[in-house]
Structures are given as C-alpha cells and as structure tokens.
Amino acid sequence: MILTTLEYVPGKNITKHLGLVQGSTVRSKHVGRDIMAGVKNIFGGELTGYTELLNESREEATERMTAQAKSIGANAILNIRFSTSNIAQGASELYAYGTAVVLE
C-alpha cells in the first residue's frame, strides 16, 4: 500500500479511482496523564504523554483508512489529509482521509 500526500505516484499510472477512504478514532486523555499535564502547565515544556497518545491515535486512524482501502481492492491512497477536532470536553477526534486508487 502506497500512502502519499501527492496527487499521483511518480512513474506509475492510475488505472482506477475508487473514491474517498477514511479512518477516524476518538481518544480521551487519561487521568494520570492529566495530572502530569497539570503540573507541566505551571512550568511549560513538551507533554510527552500527549505527544505519544496523539501519535498512536493518528497511526490507528491511518490503519483504519488503509484497511478500508484494502477491502475495496486499492493498492495506493493519494492526497492524504489529517484533521483533528475537539468533539467534547477532553476528547478529540483524529481523522485521516484520502483517495483510494489502483495503480498499474
């Protein structure tokens, strides 16, 4: 599976467009991390726990998108975009989407 933010894959022709594929996950911060974050909010600096949490969540969203693309027979996803939204107090949605295509 080729994942790219470009609109094409260099050197390869697109034989079929299969439309939009997407993957999303909603994550909440957990209390232990929240207490640490509260302390860090006084001193400043990077919140490593959150960085990891969001990184894992984005990977999860990307995996779901890839699984969807695989199930419809695609071998590449073009023009991938990521999006983040706060849907409720303390929970965010990580969303990945792109165009599934078949490359020759």
Binding site: I42, F43, L47
Partner: peptide, 10 residues
C-alpha cells in the same frame, strides 16, 4: 509525519 504537544506555562 511529525507531531508535538507543547504546554503553556503559568
């Protein structure tokens, strides 16, 4: 990809 979360200070 690369991501980072940075906190404000008081």
């Amino acid at each position: 990809t690369g991501n980072v979360v940075i906190s404000v200070d008081f």
